[in-house]
Design a protein around this nucleic acid. Structure first.
Lengths: 212, 212
DNA sequence: GTCCTTGTTGTAAGCTCTTACAATAAGGAA
DNA sequence: TTCCTTATTGTAAGAGCTTACAACAAGGAC
C-alpha cells in the first residue's frame, strides 16, 4: 500500500540536531521576551514540536537553560579565545588586538536582541550557582587571554601597564555601552562603540590602526 | 472589658507607609532571588502581611514592579540630579564633579545585592514598554545633568570635549564594572571602581582631586 | 461606650507552567 | 515486506501563582 505514506505527521530528526534546534528556539524566545518568554510550551512551539518532546531531551528547565548559556557564551567566547590564542595568526600583536576588538564590537553581536538574551542569562547567573560557576570559569579564561595579548602589545612598545586591569575595564566599557544600547536604542550606535573602545585602548597602548 | 484588647491580631498602618513597606519588601525579594523571587506571596511574607493585602494596594504585579522601579531608580537618580543641579553647592565645578562621582561609586550602592535588583529591572525594561518609557525619560535627564557639569569643568579648563559622550561612556564603564562585580565578586573591588572612573575622567578633563 | 470607616485577613477560583507517562508512528535493518 | 527501535505526540496530574472577594477587626470620631 504505497498510498498510505502520503505525508508523515512528523519528521524524525537525529537527536543531536533536534537538541540543537531546541536550544536555538529557546534562544529566540529569550531574545523575544526575556525570561518571561522562557516557557517550555512556547519554546516547543517555536521549534515546531510538541511540548512532550521537551522533557524527552531535557530533564528539566534548568538543564535547558544551561545548554542555552553554553550555546550563547561558550560558542562565542571560545571562538574569541581561539582567535586570541592563535599564535600563527598573521600580523603584529597590535594588528591582532585590533581584529579581536573588531570582533568584540561586531554589530551583528551587539544587536539589542542579543542583549535581551544576555540580560536574561546574567539575571540567572546571579541567582543560579551552577550557571555562576560555569560563567566564572569561562569568562576568566577569556579575560586572561585578552590581557595576555594586551600585555604583548604593551611590551613591544616599552609601555608599563596593567594588562589585566585594561582588559577588564575595556570589556566593562563595552558591556556598559551594550547595556545602554539595549535599554535605549538611540543612545549608542556602532560608531560609538568603536570610538569609545579604541580611545580607551589607545590611552594605554598608544596609537592603534583604526580602520574605517 | 479592658482585658479583651490583650494584643491586636494585626496593626493598621497609614496607606502610604504600608505601600512603601511593601515596595521595600519587594526590593528585598528581588535582591535575594531576582525576578524568580518576585512572587506576591513571598513579598507579602517578607513584609509580614497577608497575601490578600497585596491586591488591596496593587491592582496587579506590573503595577508593583513599576513602583519598585521608581523607588529604586527614581529615588536614587533624582537625588543625584538634585546634587548635580545644586548650583549653590560649595566648591568648584571640578570639586562638585568629584563629589558626584564618589556618590555614583558609593560602595553601599554598588553592592552585589543591589545589582541583583538592577539586573532584574533591566531585564524587565527591555521587555516591558511601560517600564522602558519611564527609564528612558529618567535616565536621559540624568545623563544630561551629568554632561552639563562635565561641560562646565571642561570649559573652565579650556578643553574641547564632548561632554555628552564622556558622561555616557563614564556611566557605561561604571555599569560594566558593576555587572562584572555582580557576576564575580572577586573580579572588582571598590578601589577598582575609583581608579577606573577617575582615570577615565582625567583623560578628558585633566587632573581631578582624587581623595583617599 | 458606640458607631463607622477601611485596613486587613483568609480563602478559593482560575489560570499557567512543569513534569511524567503511555500510546503512536517514522524510518532503518534484515 | 516485516520487525524493531526510539523519536515524537497527546494528555493529564499536580504544583504554584495571580487575582478576586466576602468577612473581620483596629482604631479614630463622637
Amino acid at each position: 500500500m504505497q498510498s498510505r505514506r502520503k505525508s508523515p505527521r512528523f519528521r524524525r530528526e537525529a537527536p543531536e540536531k533536534r537538541r540543537a534546534d531546541l536550544v536555538q528556539a529557546a534562544i529566540r524566545c529569550l531574545s523575544a521576551g526575556g525570561m518571561a518568554a522562557f516557557k517550555m510550551e512556547r519554546i516547543a512551539a517555536e521549534a515546531g514540536v510538541s511540548l512532550g518532546l521537551m522533557s524527552h531531551y531535557f530533564t528539566d528547565k534548568n538543564e535547558l537553560l544551561t545548554e542555552v548559556y553554553q550555546a550563547a557564551l561558550y560558542a562565542d567566547v571560545n571562538r574569541k579565545i581561539a582567535d586570541l590564542d592563535d599564535k600563527a595568526a598573521a600580523g603584529s600583536p597590535a594588528e591582532r588586538l585590533c581584529r579581536i576588538l573588531d570582533a568584540i564590537i561586531d554589530p551583528e553581536y551587539l544587536k539589542p536582541a542579543n542583549l535581551t538574551v544576555w540580560l536574561a542569562l546574567w539575571g540567572e547567573i546571579v541567582v543560579n550557582p551552577d550557571l555562576r560557576r560555569a560563567h566564572r570559569t569561562l569568562y576568566r579564561s577569556y579575560l586572561k587571554s585578552l590581557a595576555k595579548l594586551i600585555g604583548t602589545v604593551a611590551e613591544g612598545r616599552r609601555r608599563k601597564v596593567n594588562p589585566v586591569e585594561i582588559a577588564r575595564n575595556l570589556q566593562a566599557l563595552i558591556d556598559g555601552l551594550f547595556l545602554e544600547r539595549a535599554l535605549d536604542r538611540q543612545a549608542v550606535d556602532h560608531a560609538d562603540f568603536r570610538h569609545a573602545s579604541y580611545e580607551f585602548l589607545e590611552l594605554h597602548l598608544g596609537p592603534l590602526a583604526s580602520p574605517a
